[in-house]
């Protein structure tokens, strides 16, 4: 659609016309500013935990155990922070010498930062997920959303809406 619009503008005499072909989907997936009726809804990008443990493909399982602490997940990233895999810490092998790439789940499902909290919660409940990685459109890591924290945010938002509706 946008290339046709650009050519129409060209036919109307505009001489410096550009097409952002990746468009609104790409912009939102990068967590860049949007306006409009839906733009103010709470989204998961703001709630993603950026302190989620990460490791490189070649890191050893013995180190991951120590870095992961209480987290259920360690995300495997490259130098550009692109998510390559997910390690569920409950599945860490006994072999401390194993590398992250040998024990990770490659190509995990990830979600964009502009997904609404309500949509994400619905998906997590349907699929019985406790946490989910959030990545930008280029695959780089934003963080990990925790279902418990999204549910807490939902309760707070509902209480706030109800308070606004009350007439004292």
């Amino acid at each position: 659609m946008s290339p046709r619009a650009a050519w129409r503008l060209e036919s109307l005499g505009f001489r410096d016309v550009h097409v952002y072909a990746a468009g609104k989907a790409d912009w939102g997936a990068m967590g860049l500013p949007l306006e409009g009726a839906l733009a103010d809804r709470p989204t998961i990008g703001a709630l993603a935990r950026t302190d989620v443990p990460t490791c490189a493909l070649t890191d050893r399982v013995r180190d991951l155990r120590e870095w992961s602490g209480e987290w259920d997940t360690c995300l495997v990233v490259n130098e550009a922070r692109v998510v390559l895999g997910r390690i569920l810490t409950s599945e860490l092998s006994a072999n401390g010498d194993a590398r992250a790439e040998e024990v990770m789940r490659p190509g995990p499902s990830t979600f964009r930062p502009n997904v609404s909290v309500a949509q994400m919660l619905e998906y997590m409940r349907e699929h019985d997920l406790r946490s989910a990685p959030v990545t930008r459109g280029d695959g780089t890591l934003v963080g990990l959303v925790l279902r418990s924290e999204l549910e807490a945010a939902e309760v707070t938002a509902r209480a706030s809406r109800e308070k606004d509706m009350r007439v004292d």
């Binding site: 946008s2 619009a5 129409r8 503008l9 505009f14 016309v17 097409v19 952002y20 072909a21 609104k24």
Partner: peptide, 27 residues
Amino acid sequence: IPLKELDERSAARLDRARPVIVYCHDL
């Protein structure tokens, strides 16, 4: 400016001296 309404009149909202970037949802 919706594509279906893009004509000389609606394009008059734009400044011809500045670059224009058009976009839609995606490709």
